[in-house]
Write a protein that binds this DNA or RNA. Structure first.
Length: 491
DNA sequence: CTGGGGATGGGGCCC
DNA sequence: TGGGCCCCATCCCCA
C-alpha cells in the first residue's frame, strides 16, 4: 500500500509538471499571437488613419474647388435677369438652395463637429430633419433627393439676391466660399436654423397654397421716400381661377377681368434689391388684392396660360428650367414678356404675369356703361410690346413733358401720369383688364368712353356729320379724317 | 376710304 | 386746392 501511495504521489508530481509546462507553452503561444495580432491591428489602425486623413484632405479640396467654381459662376451670372431669378427661386423652392449642394457637402452635420473614426464623410444627413421637413411640407415632392445627394454646386447657395431666408445665412455662406475649413466647424446650427426659417416662411408662403398661387405676399416693405408712385392697385373684382377652369368670384363691384400676377415672394427681394426705389410693399398689395388669376374670355374659351402652374409644376419640361435661362418654347409669350419686362428693368415682378383665361358662361347682364359684372377681355403679352411702343411713340413715358407733374408711374412701363385714375386705366393696357362690356355684343373695353363710342355701332347713331357732303360718322376721328377728302389734305 | 377699336390727354364737376 | 371721377377729343392703327 505504501508503494502504491508513493506511486500516486509521483504521478501527481509529473502531472503537475506537465500541466505547468503546457500552460506556459500555451501562454507563450498566446502571447506571441497576441503580439502579432496587436501589431497587425496597430498597423491597420495606422493605415486607417492615413486613409482617413487623405479622404479628409480630398473632401476639403473638393469643397474648396466647388466654392471657387460657385464664385465664378456667380460672377458670370451676376447680371440681373428675371429668368435667372426665377430659376434660382425654383432651385430654392425645390430644396436646391443653400441647403443643398456643395455647401452641404462640406458642412458637417449637426452633432458631428468633431471628426470621429468611421464617420462617413457624406453629409446627406447634414441638413437634418429641417431639410426633410422643408422638402415634404414646402415642396411636397421628394424629386430632388438626387440633387441633395449628388452634391451639385449650389448656385443659390451664395446668391446674394435670393430669398430673405438666404439673407440670414449670407455671412456664413460667404465664409463658406472663402474658407471651407472654417465651415467645418460652423454653419451647422445656422443651416438648421435657416432650414427652419425657410420652413416657417414656406408655411406662410401663399405660393404653397394652391388656392392662392401667384398671390403670395412679397414680404418686402415699401421703399420709403419714393418720389414716384408706381400704381399697383386696381379696385376690381377678384376672380379666382382654379385649375379646373372654374372661377370663384370673391366679390367686389368692379371688373372681373384680370390676369394672374404671380408674385414670387422669394423672388421679390431678388429683383427689388437691384431695383430702383420703387415701392415694394405695394407689389404685395397689388398681387394680393389688385389682380386675380382668372379672366373670362369673351369667346368662352378656356385658355390657360398658367405660369403659376408653371412654377408649381417645376419639373415640367416646358416650364422654367433651372438649367435654362429662358422659358421653354411653349412659353414664348411669357418669355417675350420677360424680355419686355427685362427691358424695362424696373419691375421685375411682372415676370410671371400670367393671363389666365377661364371659361365661365355668363349672362349679358352687364350694365351699359358701368363695369361689367363678370365679363372681361384679356390682352395677351404678345401685344404689349407693340402697344407700348406705340404709346411711347406718342410721346408717352414718365419724362414726357406735361403741365401736370406725372407722379403716378405705371408699374409695368414706368410711364408717368398725372393722376391715379389715368395710370390705372393705362395699366389695363398691360393687364388686359376690360371692365366695360357691351350689352349688345360681347365686346369689352378698358374705358367707358370707348364703350360708349362702341355703342353707336348698335344704335346707329352718327353724331358727326360732314359739312361738305353731309356724310355722317359715328367716330369723330373718322369725320375728321373724312374731311381731308374735301380739303385734299394728304394723310 | 371707311369702320371701328386702342390708347392718351385734357377739361369739367364734385368732394 | 387737390384728387378722384367722368367725359370727350384726338391720334394711331388695323381690317
Amino acid at each position: 500500500m505504501a508503494n502504491c501511495g508513493g506511486f500516486h504521489t509521483q504521478i501527481a508530481s509529473i502531472m503537475e509538471v506537465l500541466a505547468n509546462a503546457a500552460v506556459s507553452e500555451i501562454c507563450k503561444l498566446v502571447d506571441d499571437d497576441y503580439a502579432v495580432f496587436r501589431l497587425e491591428v496597430t498597423q491597420s489602425q495606422k493605415e486607417n488613419r492615413t486613409l482617413r486623413r487623405k479622404l479628409h484632405l480630398l473632401e476639403l479640396k473638393v469643397a474648396r474647388e466647388r466654392a471657387e467654381r460657385t464664385t465664378r459662376e456667380r460672377v458670370v451670372a451676376s447680371r440681373p435677369s428675371s429668368v435667372k431669378t426665377l430659376d434660382r427661386y425654383r432651385g430654392m423652392a425645390r430644396g436646391e438652395g443653400h441647403l443643398t449642394g456643395s455647401h452641404r457637402s462640406f458642412v458637417k452635420p449637426a452633432g458631428h463637429n468633431t471628426w470621429r473614426e468611421n464617420q462617413p464623410i457624406t453629409v446627406d444627413e447634414a441638413a437634418g430633419p429641417g431639410v426633410k421637413q422643408e422638402r415634404t411640407k414646402g415642396e411636397k415632392e421628394p424629386r430632388h433627393s438626387g440633387d441633395i445627394q449628388t452634391r451639385e454646386p449650389p448656385v443659390a447657395t451664395e446668391d446674394p439676391t435670393s430669398a430673405p431666408a438666404r439673407c440670414r445665412t449670407r455671412p456664413s455662406i460667404t465664409e463658406v466660399s472663402g474658407t471651407p475649413n472654417t465651415v467645418l466647424k460652423s454653419e451647422t446650427d445656422t443651416e438648421t436654423l435657416t432650414a427652419t426659417h425657410r420652413l416657417l416662411h414656406t408655411g406662410s408662403d401663399h405660393r404653397s397654397d394652391p388656392e392662392r398661387l401667384g398671390l403670395g405676399p412679397l414680404g418686402c416693405s415699401p421703399a420709403p421716400g419714393s418720389e414716384y408712385l408706381p400704381v399697383f392697385h386696381q379696385s376690381q373684382r377678384t376672380v379666382h381661377s382654379r385649375g379646373d377652369g372654374d372661377t370663384l368670384d370673391t366679390g367686389g363691384d368692379v371688373p372681373s377681368c384680370s390676369y394672374a400676377t404671380e408674385m414670387d415672394p422669394d423672388d421679390m427681394p431678388l429683383g427689388l434689391e437691384t431695383q430702383a426705389d420703387l415701392s415694394r410693399g405695394d407689389w404685395n398689395h397689388y398681387s394680393s388684392s389688385g389682380y386675380s388669376e382668372g379672366c373670362l374670355n369673351k369667346k368662352g374659351e378656356v385658355i390657360v396660360i398658367d405660369e403659376v402652374t408653371v412654377k408649381v409644376e417645376g419639373d415640367s419640361p416646358l416650364t422654367l428650367n433651372a438649367d435654362e435661362t429662358h422659358l421653354g418654347e411653349g412659353h414664348s409669350q411669357g418669355r417675350d414678356f420677360l424680355d419686355y419686362r427685362e427691358r424695362l428693368e424696373t419691375n421685375p415682378n411682372v415676370a410671371t404675369h400670367s393671363p389666365l383665361h377661364t371659361l365661365r358662361d355668363r349672362d349679358p347682364v352687364s350694365t351699359l356703361m358701368g363695369p361689367s359684372d363678370s365679363q372681361g377681355c384679356i390682352l395677351f403679352d404678345q401685344v404689349l410690346n407693340s402697344k407700348d411702343q406705340r404709346a411711347n411713340g406718342r410721346g408717352g413715358g414718365a419724362t414726357s413733358g406735361n403741365s401736370k407733374e406725372k407722379r403716378f408711374l405705371c408699374m409695368f412701363c414706368n410711364k408717368g401720369f398725372s393722376c391715379l385714375q389715368k395710370v390705372e386705366i393705362h395699366q389695363r393696357v398691360h393687364t388686359g383688364v376690360k371692365p366695360f362690356s357691351c350689352t349688345q355684343c360681347h365686346m369689352c373695353f378698358a374705358e367707358a368712353g370707348n364703350l360708349k363710342r362702341h355703342q353707336r355701332v348698335h344704335t346707329g347713331e352718327k353724331p358727326f356729320s360732314c359739312t361738305q357732303c353731309h356724310m355722317r360718322f359715328s367716330h369723330s376721328s373718322s369725320m375728321k379724317r373724312h374731311r381731308r377728302v374735301h380739303t385734299g389734305e394728304k394723310y
